[in-house]
Computed example of a mutant assay.
Amino acid sequence: MQNNIRDNKELEAIALNVREHIIKMSTDGGCFTGASLSAVDMIVYLYAEFLNLHKDNLTDPERDYLFLSKGHDVPALYGTFAELGLIEKERLANHLSINDHIYWHPNTHIPGIEFHSGSLGHLPSVAIGVAMDIKIRGGANKVICIMGDGELNEGSCWEAVLVANAYKLDNLIFVIDRNKFQANMATEDLIPLEPLHNKFTAFGAAVSRIDGHDFNELRRAFEKYPFAEGKLNVVIADTIRGKGLPSIQARADRWFCNFSADEVEQLLQELHGEHTTQLTSETLVVR
C-alpha cells in the first residue's frame, strides 16, 4: 500500500527543508544546485505520499522502486531521504567526504538508492527490466524512473519508451523533469524537444503534463495510475531550474554551483524570503 495522504503544508515544509539541504551541499566542492532544486517537489511527493517505499521496507520484494536517471539531482534525493528518515541528517555534512558515499551521483551504498546513475539515458532501460520482472512474477510494485529533459537527447530513452509499450508495462512511470535546461544551455536552443506531449503519445505512451511544483497537480496525476491499461505512463512535470531562489532561477549559468560559506548563508536567507542575493559568476563552477 502507498504512504498516507499528507497535508500540502506538511509536504511544503518537507520540501523547504530539502531545499535547505541542497543549498548547504552547494559549497566545499559544490553540487548540481539548479537541477536539484527543480526536482525537489516531485521527489518529496513521490516518497512522502505515492510510493510504498520507506525506511522500514527498503529490501522488501513488495516495495516500489524509484530510479533517478538524472543522477546529478541526487542532492534532492539525499535531502528527501534525510527528512523522511532513510538516512541520518548529520550524514549530509559528509557530502564529498572520502569517509562517506554522499557524492555527486547516486551510490547504492546509501540506503534507498536502487542503482548507480549519472550516465544519462541509462536507467530507463534498468527500470524496464525491473518492471518486466514484476509483471512476470505477477507483482503489484510500482516502478518510477525520473529523467531530465536534456536527457531525452539520448536515443536510448526513446528506445526505452518503445520497448515499454511493446511489453505493455503499465506498472512503469517515466517522470520528466521539464526545467527547460540541459547543462548550461536552454533545451530549445540546442535540440528542441517540443511538442513533447505529442511525441510521447506518438510513441504509444499515456501522458499527463502538470506543474511539477504543485502538490495538488502531482496528486491528481499520480492518483490516476495506471493512466491506461497496457501503456507506459509518462508524467511531464514542468519545473523551474533553481526553484526557491529567485537570484538563480531559470539561469543557464546556475547548473553546477560551488558557493562560499557566506554565500550559502545568503541563499538560505533568500530561501526564507529574508533578502535577495546578487551572486556573481566568479563563484560558479560550470562543468
Rank of each mutant, 00 (worst) to 15 (best):
residue 165 N to F: 06
residue 105 H to V: 08
residue 111 P to L: 10
residue 107 N to V: 04
residue 87 I to P: 05
residue 157 C to S: 12
residue 94 N to A: 05
residue 164 A to P: 01
residue 133 D to L: 12
residue 101 H to M: 15
residue 128 I to H: 03
residue 124 P to Q: 15
residue 111 P to A: 13
residue 115 F to N: 15
residue 61 P to V: 08
residue 58 L to W: 10
residue 97 S to K: 14
residue 83 E to G: 04
residue 155 G to I: 06
residue 155 G to A: 03
residue 121 G to I: 04
residue 88 E to Y: 11
residue 89 K to H: 05
residue 113 I to Y: 01
residue 123 L to A: 05
residue 129 G to P: 02
residue 159 E to N: 00
residue 103 Y to T: 15
residue 67 F to P: 02
residue 137 R to D: 03
residue 167 Y to K: 02
residue 134 I to Y: 04
residue 115 F to L: 09
residue 66 L to Y: 12
residue 140 A to I: 15
residue 125 S to H: 15
residue 51 L to I: 02
residue 140 A to K: 15
residue 110 I to D: 07
residue 150 G to E: 09
residue 141 N to V: 13
residue 63 R to I: 11
residue 125 S to D: 01
residue 128 I to L: 03
residue 107 N to A: 08
residue 100 D to H: 15
residue 78 Y to V: 06
residue 59 T to N: 13
residue 62 E to A: 11
residue 146 I to H: 06
residue 77 L to G: 00
residue 143 V to N: 03
residue 117 S to F: 01
residue 47 Y to L: 12
residue 66 L to Q: 03
residue 77 L to V: 05
residue 47 Y to K: 12
residue 115 F to T: 15
residue 93 A to L: 14
residue 95 H to M: 05
residue 106 P to F: 08
residue 70 K to S: 09
residue 58 L to Q: 06
residue 116 H to E: 07
residue 116 H to K: 12
residue 102 I to A: 03
residue 55 K to D: 14
residue 96 L to D: 11
residue 129 G to T: 09
residue 153 N to Y: 03
residue 146 I to R: 05
residue 160 A to M: 09
residue 123 L to I: 06
residue 53 L to S: 10
residue 167 Y to F: 14
residue 109 H to F: 12
residue 128 I to W: 00
residue 141 N to R: 04
residue 64 D to V: 00
residue 151 E to C: 04
residue 102 I to M: 06
residue 78 Y to L: 08
residue 56 D to L: 11
residue 55 K to R: 15
residue 161 V to E: 00
residue 153 N to L: 06
residue 160 A to Q: 06
residue 157 C to R: 14
residue 168 K to G: 07
residue 48 A to V: 00
residue 145 C to Y: 02
residue 153 N to H: 02
residue 155 G to K: 03
residue 162 L to I: 15
